[in-house]
Structures are given as structure tokens and as C-alpha cells.
């Protein structure tokens, strides 16, 4: 990302080490990145600071990625959301598609692919 156009990204993932390392890598590329380790924490954070894009895990305890996504759509409309997940069932995939996610990325990530898509959705916003 170019200097002076810093965009913000929120990562919601219960795998703390993964989320923080990914955040570090994105920060090195001039993005302002925050991490939330649960759906509830992520939604609470968004009440105060709405990010430009969301990176969202699907399988999390207590509140699933789909539940978070549904709330995000109700409250914040078409905020760009990229799914980052180890496994996405066909049912989850279909529901996420209906809720208008911009992309899916499976773990371990192809970082280049994720970053390129993230930049694209941030520019479109």
C-alpha cells in the first residue's frame, strides 16, 4: 500500500499467534491492523473503530464466522470481508457467499494472493 493512504484492517481469528503474525506482516505493508481473538471481541471493536476491511476466520468457539458475518452485514452493510479458514464446509461456503464475502483463503495462506485481493478490495472501497 502507498504511504499516506493507510487503510485499516481487522483480523478476527481465535488462533492468536496466527492472527498476530499475520497482522505484523500486513503492518509491514503499511496497513493499520488490529486483532480480535473472538467474534464478540471483534464486533465490540467495530462499534468503536470500523475498519476498511475484515479478515474473518470461520470456525471459532462461541460465535462462528457466519454469525459474525451476519451481524456485520446487518450493522455495517457491505464492508469488505475476506474469509481465512482451515476448512469451510459447503454449507458455510454457500451461506458466506449469500452474505457477499469478497473471497476465501485457506490456511496455511498464500500470502501474496491474500494481500493482492485485500489491496484490491481496499481500493474499491
Amino acid at each position: 500500500m502507498q504511504a499516506g493512504t493507510q487503510k485499516s484492517v481487522l483480523i478476527i481469528d481465535d488462533e492468536e499467534d496466527f492472527a498476530h503474525t499475520l497482522a505484523e506482516r500486513l503492518s509491514l505493508r503499511n496497513l493499520a491492523v488490529q486483532v480480535a481473538c473472538s467474534g464478540a471481541e471483534g464486533l465490540a471493536f467495530m462499534e468503536q473503530n470500523l475498519p476498511d476491511a475484515l479478515l474473518l476466520d470461520m470456525r471459532m468457539p462461541a460465535m462462528s464466522g457466519i454469525e459474525v458475518l451476519r451481524t456485520v452485514r446487518q450493522k455495517y452493510g457491505m464492508l469488505p470481508v475476506l474469509i481465512i479458514t482451515g476448512h469451510c464446509s459447503q454449507e458455510d461456503h454457500d451461506r458466506a457467499q449469500e452474505l457477499g464475502v469478497q473471497g476465501y483463503h485457506s490456511k496455511p495462506l498464500d500470502f501474496k494472493e491474500l494481500f493482492e485481493q485485500l489491496v484490491e478490495v481496499l481500493h474499491q472501497k
Partner: peptide, 27 residues
């Protein structure tokens, strides 16, 4: 299914961590 899911998470952490080292070296 559960174990392979967990292993994917572990691999993801290893990969991002090693790539972060690479990023820092490159910078």
C-alpha cells in the same frame, strides 16, 4: 477432521512466522 484442521492452523503459524522473518530480512 478435527486433528487435520488443528494441524492446518499450526502449519499456518509456522508459515507466517517464517515469512515474517523473511520480510524483516528483506526490509
Amino acid at each position: 477432521a478435527s486433528s487435520t484442521h488443528e494441524l492446518q492452523n499450526i502449519l499456518a503459524i509456522i508459515k507466517e512466522s517464517s515469512c515474517l522473518v523473511e520480510d524483516v530480512l528483506q526490509i
